[in-house]
Design a protein around this nucleic acid. Structure first.
Lengths: 156, 156
DNA sequence: CAGATTTAGATGCATTTGCAAATATCCTGA
DNA sequence: TCAGGATATTTGCAAATGCATCTAAATCTG
């Protein structure tokens, strides 16, 4: 009975609709899909959009930090940054203290681009939460914050 | 004041850590990453794993239905199914009533493969919810279900 | 302080992805 | 019943992705 395979009830028993990661993946898939058209209009892909989003809140992170914050693979992010830079949306700058490290900054054009997209993102979120009362919404976000804390750092 | 751009407070004001889609994307990124190694060992990619997961619960859907249920683009899914079929994990069968349509069935090998992976998935979920009491967990899943209902079907 | 090790980021390359188009089948109305 | 259009899935192709590797720079060791 210590066999790992017997610790958890099978998915078929739980049901897809009660398995949180399935629901979250499915909801995020729709959310992301609903933004794809607007992003394409602005010449953005998901990694580019995420970079601009994070930079609009926290400017000047290292590439590696931005990779964690955006949940985008570092090599993918590096190339997304190439494109954003070519489009004048961001600027890379060698870190003063460590010349291996590169800090990333949004330009005015990048900020403006994200500000064009943001209303669509906010509206998509509002649609997701339609009919969910304010206190339930707050509790939901609180749980998400706990979950994020749980999975940050510790490996395995 | 009816300008769409002024309806929503900017992301910088809300804060990344309070914007639900950001938190969800980040959490799912970790969840998916934590399973990547086990999946690779089994020769699975995310679309292949999702197909097996859904099929373990609901066998015999149409390819298009499976695409919706797995949140995998249909052409991507079609190729994932090619690979699963080549590996003997699934079987495709023309629908009796409509010969354009294709139904997908797991084989015993496919079921066994998913059953090997499932404990890791369940454990990853358990880690996510560490320290979240049972009633909070249930409320969280309840909110997810409402959200999924919100974004199903209706476009825009 | 030299050499070995670690770390940050970029890049080569094979694979995967998704859009658009192709194929095959079904349905609808004259 | 047949033409015209809709629908289910697959496939062509260019772009994006991620692993492994590379380069450069920092840090650690003796």
């Amino acid at each position: 009975m210590n066999d790992e395979t017997s610790l958890y009830p099978p998915l078929a028993e739980i049901g897809l609709g009660n398995y949180a990661p399935y629901l979250m993946n499915r909801i995020m898939g729709r959310y992301n899909a609903s933004l794809r058209a607007e992003m394409a209009d602005l010449g953005l892909t998901t990694p580019k959009m995420r970079a601009l989003a994070v930079l609009s809140v926290q400017d000047g992170p290292l590439v590696g930090e931005l990779s964690l914050l955006t949940v985008v693979e570092q090599s993918t992010l590096s190339r997304a940054l190439d494109q954003l830079q070519a489009g004048g949306m961001i600027r890379r700058e060698a870190d003063a203290a460590d010349s291996r490290a590169v800090r990333v900054f949004v330009t005015d054009a990048g900020r403006a681009c994200f500000e064009t997209l943001w209303p669509h993102m906010a509206a998509a979120q509002a649609r997701m939460f339609r009919g969910v009362p304010e206190d339930e919404r707050r509790a939901f976000v609180g749980t998400l914050q706990k979950m994020l804390a749980n999975i940050r750092r510790q490996g395995s």
